[in-house]
Design a protein around this nucleic acid. Structure first.
Lengths: 247, 247
DNA sequence: AAGTGGTCTAGACCACCTG
DNA sequence: AGGTGGTCTAGACCACTTA
């Protein structure tokens, strides 16, 4: 039987497994389990919260469906991470028109701290004038520039972020954010549109001025739906495309 | 205990609920339950297949997650449909930059039958020279053209499709396809890129030649991952954007 | 062998909808 | 009141991994 102390007695009914989910989420947010680490087993969590294994299981099922956790049969359940997906960056939907998705080279253009411009501050929920970090970079495939990214991060969350750190790190940038700053991107919203290349952009991407580019504005969120990254990418889609699945 | 006759005894282990899922899928594909209809209750299905309700439940859970079925507490489980989503077309990710997503007007430009061009035939899995239906249309918001669509369908699946039928139908086109031709779109893959408006396109969309447009190529699938629609849309993204969620 | 997640059952009870 | 999906339990057993 459900533990009476745990059952939410407010008028609005809340299933037990949802309450378990909230507690697991709190553990994640508090950093009790780090990215890539194994969380306690289902039986242990069941004992800890005094519910049956099936109830814990349902909570974990949902979190796995949201890509917060990863189950591995026989091994355990692990905190999802951007660091190990060697195949492709988890949030990058750009694919080459021909051939298989290969890793792209990165080239850091700029890394500076400044006061957040109004639109950035609004998107990231910063007070006017709060510090922000701006990154600019190129992604290249076969030595050809394909993506020109402009990235904004809240300054208070990324205190020691420098160009050296970024250049020295192997693997996805989000992996660095997890390991060094404890900031995990769990969800993002993107807005896509077609735009004409402006002078500066056309130079970085080596396309004519006015050439059509795919503009991808991304707002990334961490636990509790707090926005922690604003990014605007310009994609040269002559040899690549943005892939999406609908269902 | 599981019914021995149902348990797959081949070396490769297959869970019971997966086998149930296959059978439900067959029922859907065979048209035993039409779009929007209620399927038998969990207890009845459990009795029919001689498994416990929990096993049927897990099968249905997965199919609901794939948007094949829709559960409604207290009412039953229903076959997913494109016909009733009055809010927005299920596969249309275009949003106005400001304001709330409002329905768009449709304007049919053309509807003709012809032999499928090679690239269309390849995408739809047609033999060279098999008949196909081509549709062209505009979507408008506030009297302004926003989307110019070019749509290809296998001729043998859409025998009686005419301009009159299309114009006379209220609601999403996919709703008509379900009701009149029994063809249900359950999944689609899209490829997005930025392109420059060609002369004809620029006239339909009332934009200058060379203006950047968002090109959306969609291949839609029905049960059994059979491709049944190829579509190329050109979106004017000056007042709209393509919205996507990552996780 | 022991530990993990994965499947399946049988039964109880709850929340929601309809007549 | 009766049907539907939704939750929760306790226990058995299976598949996969590691030591």
């Amino acid at each position: 039987m459900p533990d009476a102390a745990l059952v939410d007695s407010t008028p609005s009914f809340q299933p037990l497994y949802q309450q378990i989910k909230v507690r697991l989420l709190q553990n994640l947010q508090a950093g009790d389990w780090k990215a890539g680490e194994m969380i306690p087993s289902e039986v242990e969590l069941a004992a800890r919260y005094k519910v049956s294994q099936g109830t814990v299981r349902k909570a974990i099922d949902e979190m796995a469906a949201e890509n917060l956790l990863v189950r591995r049969q026989g091994k355990g359940t692990f905190v999802a991470t951007h660091a190990e997906e060697t195949t492709q960056y988890r949030f990058l939907r750009l694919m080459p028109d021909e051939g298989v998705a290969a890793g792209m080279q990165r080239r850091l253009i700029d890394c500076r701290r400044m006061r957040a411009p109004p639109d950035v501050a609004r998107a990231l929920g910063l007070k006017g004038g709060e510090p922000a970090v701006q990154l600019r970079r190129l992604l290249l495939a076969d030595e050809r520039p394909v993506v020109f990214d402009d990235i904004w991060l809240p300054g208070h969350l990324f205190k020691g972020l420098t160009a050296e750190k970024l250049s020295g790190y192997r693997g996805p940038m989000y992996g660095l954010f997890e390991a060094e700053f404890g900031v995990r991107m769990i969800r993002a919203e993107e807005r896509l549109r077609a735009v004409a290349a402006q002078p500066e952009e056309s130079r970085w991407l080596a396309v004519p001025e006015g050439a059509p580019l795919l503009s991808v504005e991304r707002l990334s969120f961490t636990y509790g739906d707090r926005p922690v990254e604003l990014r605007r990418g310009l994609y040269d889609t002559t040899r690549h495309h943005y892939r999406n699945e609908l269902s």
